[in-house]
């Protein structure tokens, strides 16, 4: 029992993960947790919602991640005038053959970055979220499966709320994780500036442009779909003990019975907690889930699925405070 027996699957997946982290770390400073959450979403087939102000390297992170694993990457900037067909695709008339031809939209990709998802009209959000859930799209009379793997990383700016359409709880529930990005630390900020100052000028088409971080991304991937599939399989082999299930069930039920919560967690939240904990265990080189996985992921899995009562909001409570109180109580009064 002293030396944890780590399976060869986990070891090879760990090497793959370390390579991705190393590649991402060359371009993106810090944001280790975001990288971890993105990998969790990728390994479990869940979707990730990132909440944070602009300029925190969200796009760069997803871009470098897709290049690291040789995945196709698309980005859609959501705006008020976006239409569902702009995302899903449409049928267009080919005048040479006088027949309709299907033009697939940017959703047909492996990694989709939906930037500022709350700026689009609800019908556009609905179209995307439905595709996320079903992993297929119907254009005209034909249904197309989305590529595998398919991961949506959506972003929301929590500050500018004017002209936005807030995602309702039912649609937020489709995101397995909702991570709140934070500003880099002082040391990380210093490193960001140092790296940016090292960028030069790039000659192109007889002219020149100032280089950005995107220009220095390495094209050669560190892994391919096979490694990703192996990682996904390893995640599904992670052992979830009855004791761990007990903790998850207790936590989910406590959110439903908390007096300051109007809306508690759905069963999907419990499923997401288990899935995400399994992926986190693999990322940390384990083949079984432990409470640390649960406590670490609780905020990202639960906070966007709960709604506070009017009285709790008036008392200045936040979802984060209530969740912390629940977790603390679980530890203090284990019974």
């Amino acid at each position: 029992m002293d030396q944890p027996v780590v399976s060869s699957d986990i070891k090879s997946v760990s090497r793959f993960i370390d390579a991705i982290r190393e590649r991402v770390g060359r371009v993106v400073v810090g944001q280790d947790i975001v990288v971890e959450r993105t990998l969790i979403a990728l390994f479990t087939g869940g979707h990730l919602l990132l909440q944070g102000v602009p300029g925190l390297a969200k796009t760069l992170l997803v871009s470098v991640l897709s290049k690291s694993i040789d995945l196709h990457f698309s980005r859609i900037q959501f705006t008020i005038d976006l239409l569902p067909s702009d995302i899903l695709g449409s049928e267009i008339l080919d005048q040479r053959t006088s027949e309709f031809r299907t033009k697939k939209g940017p959703i047909f990709t492996n990694l989709l970055l939906a930037d500022e998802i709350n700026r689009a009209a609800p019908k556009v959000q609905g179209a995307l979220l439905e595709a996320m859930q079903e992993r297929r799209v119907t254009i005209g009379d034909t249904t197309f499966n989305l590529p595998a793997p398919f991961l949506v990383i959506a972003t929301q700016n929590p500050v500018e709320q004017a002209g936005t359409f807030e995602l309702p709880e039912a649609q937020l529930d489709r995101f397995m994780l909702c991570h709140r990005l934070e500003y880099p630390s002082v040391e990380e900020e210093r490193e960001v500036l140092r790296r940016n100052a090292g960028l030069g000028v790039q000659r192109r088409d007889g002219g020149a442009v100032v280089q950005t971080e995107f220009d220095v991304l390495e094209k050669e991937p560190v892994g391919h779909a096979e490694e990703l599939i192996a990682a996904m399989e390893a995640v599904h082999k992670v052992h979830v003990s009855d004791t761990f299930l007990e903790h998850v069930v207790k936590l989910v039920h406590e959110t439903r019975n908390h007096p300051q919560l109007e809306l508690g967690c759905s069963p999907r939240a419990g499923i997401s907690l288990i899935k995400a904990s399994r992926a986190r265990a693999v990322i940390h080189g384990r083949d079984y889930c432990i409470p640390e996985d649960l406590f670490s992921l609780a905020e990202d899995v639960i906070l966007h699925r709960i709604r506070l009562t009017y009285e709790a909001v008036a008392d200045g409570m936040t979802g984060k405070k209530i969740l912390r109180e629940i977790l603390d109580r679980d530890i203090k009064s284990a019974d």
């Binding site: 009855d242 004791t243 007990e246 903790h247 409470p291 679980d330 530890i331 284990a334 019974d335």
Partner: peptide, 11 residues
Amino acid sequence: SVQQKAELDLL
């Protein structure tokens, strides 16, 4: 029991 295990761990 599972409940006892869960309790012991958190304690």
